[in-house]
């Protein structure tokens, strides 16, 4: 495993850079704003990359609507698709570098993102007149998971078109993709 880590030190350095960047992103800064054409295209790319080729974009307008969407049913297929990607990437990364170094590097990413996203979500919600500690934590959890997924995609060598890379770009642009159900990607 040591040789694998040494050979992949560039990948780990890049992941360390990725962890450091988490505090500089526009977490939740654009939620509730009208979607741009570029964001709609990214959303569709994300859905297609997960296998939802006929998905459409559903704009979510505010925090209460985001809560209703995330509390809804019918997300199993989307969930399974993401989990299959996660499992495949983890197998690849583990084969390349060993499980412990990969998990340690990803822990640094999730630690870095966790320290900033709860505050960012709370501020964004407060700007809209919403003070809900649970919903802010839900948003923070989603952002942390997205950063973990994106970090995993990077360490496994997946490219910029991987669904986790695309999803992360939406988060980095201040959005919150809420999941796919009924052929709709709910995008906040």
């Amino acid at each position: 495993m040591t040789g694998g880590v040494a050979a992949g030190s560039g990948a780990f350095d890049a992941l360390a850079d990725f962890a450091r960047q988490q505090s500089e992103l526009a977490w939740f800064a654009a939620v509730g704003e009208a979607l741009t054409d570029g964001e709609r295209a990214e959303g569709l790319d994300y859905a297609k990359a997960l296998g939802f080729t006929d998905a459409a974009i559903g704009m979510v307008a505010d925090w209460p609507a985001a809560e209703r969407a995330t509390r809804g049913a019918g997300y199993e297929a989307w969930w399974s698709a993401e989990n299959a990607e996660r499992t495949a990437l983890l197998e690849t990364a583990t084969r390349m570098f060993g499980r412990h170094p990969v998990m340690t590097a990803l822990t640094h990413v999730t630690e870095a993102v966790s320290t900033v996203v709860l505050g960012a979500a709370s501020v964004a919600a407060a700007r809209s007149g919403v003070a809900d500690v649970a919903l802010a934590r839900v948003a923070a959890g989603a952002a942390t998971e997205a950063a973990y997924h994106a970090g995993l995609a990077r360490i496994a060598g997946a490219g910029a078109h991987h669904p986790f890379a695309v999803k992360f770009r939406l988060f980095a642009g201040g959005r919150w993709p809420l999941g796919i159900t009924g052929g709709i990607l709910h995008l906040f």
């Binding site: 995330t70 509390r71 997300y75 649970a134 934590r137 839900v138 959890g141 942390t144 998971e145 809420l178």
Partner: peptide
Amino acid sequence: VALAPTPYAKWLTCRVAMEEYGHHC
């Protein structure tokens, strides 16, 4: 996280896991 019934529950559980881990730290 894998047992959570909705995205809301899943992400809230993610956050709780990170907070518990943070306490350990």
